[in-house]
Design a protein around this nucleic acid. Structure first.
Length: 285
DNA sequence: AAGGTACACAACCGCGGAGAA
DNA sequence: GTTCTCCGCGGTTGTGTACCT
């Protein structure tokens, strides 16, 4: 009933792109700019469907793409953003301007998912309700105890959370922007450290936003310089957005900032979650 | 050296949303 | 309000390569 997939048309080439095809595509986009992908195959003579051209450009040929190993900082950002947004790779990618959504998705599926699974397994085997010295952890903001399962939820099943509280990347960015400003005078990282120290009965895990852990493997996943990365994100965000996102962003400029309290609370709870994860990392050794 | 396996990444497919007609 | 077209996203598959036996 539906229209046939565009790539099923006769004469449409599939498979790896050749350097010649890349050159044709790049030179066309240099001349006309990205967009109007429908016309790209016809105007260039490329035997590729429009989707394939767009994909090739956005994931491979677009200038400014960083390839190769992800830094621990990037890993940390991906883990946290995935916990926050779920599998919204495009949204996550907008916070990592040099990385494509495809790249991030692949990296998550091949590396981070395994690490998180390992982390979860380690947690399941190590953490018991009778371990009263460290657990249950306590929410910094509410003072209520947090059941480990609830905290791990942010990583295991983020969709429920993200659907409710994180309707868009821009909203989150805006929330964070506001939060960073408002909190800089009230809740800086050293205060976070102090809070963490109080709440965990002297077990200090957060050092300037970075989880301290003896386990190097988990360090790379869990270390996350919140202050630094979000500051940078705001600078890079607009430039990193594609045209569609930029349009959305422009629309949202007309709206006032949403209240911060809920997100603020969640972020603070996240630091508690980091303490938990840090503890797990140590126990895994 | 050859075959098998695991891994990483490029590319494809199907679906849904947005906007135009 | 409905239909159509285009674009973008997320999940999945295919392919090349490194590693192991």
């Amino acid at each position: 009933m539906g229209r046939p997939p565009c790539c099923d048309k006769v004469g449409i080439k599939k498979g790896p792109w050749t350097p010649e095809e890349d050159i044709i595509l790049v030179s066309y986009i240099q001349e006309h700019g990205p967009g109007n992908w429908r016309s790209v195959p016809t105007n260039t003579g490329l035997l590729r469907c429009s989707k394939s051209c767009r994909l090739r450009w956005t994931n491979y040929l677009r200038p400014g793409i960083k390839r190769g190993n992800f830094t621990p900082h990037e890993e940390g950002m991906i883990v946290h953003l995935q916990a926050l947004l779920g599998n919204k790779w495009a949204a996550i990618a907008s916070y990592l301007p040099q990385r494509t959504d495809n790249d991030i998705k692949n990296y998550w599926n091949t590396h981070l998912k395994k690490k998180m699974k390992k982390l979860q397994t380690a947690y399941d085997s190590q953490i018991t309700p009778s371990d009263s010295t460290t657990y249950p952890p306590v929410s910094i903001s509410t003072g209520k105890s947090l059941h480990p399962n609830t905290m791990i939820m942010s990583t295991k099943n983020p969709h429920q959370f993200s659907n409710i509280y994180a309707s868009s990347t821009q909203n989150i960015s805006r929330l964070l922007d506001g939060w960073m400003r408002s909190s800089s005078s009230t809740t800086n990282s050293s205060q976070m450290k102090k809070l963490g120290n109080q709440e965990t009965g002297g077990k200090e895990c957060l050092i300037d936003g970075v989880v301290e852990s003896d386990n190097l493997e988990f360090d790379s996943v869990l270390s996350f310089d919140i202050n630094g990365c979000w500051e940078k994100m705001r600078d890079d965000e607009y430039a990193a957005c594609n045209l569609h996102d930029q349009r959305k962003l422009q629309k949202q400029e007309s709206f006032s900032n949403p209240p911060l309290t809920f997100f603020e609370r969640w972020l603070l709870d996240e630091s508690a979650a980091s303490q938990l994860e840090g503890a797990i990392g140590q126990q895994v050794n």
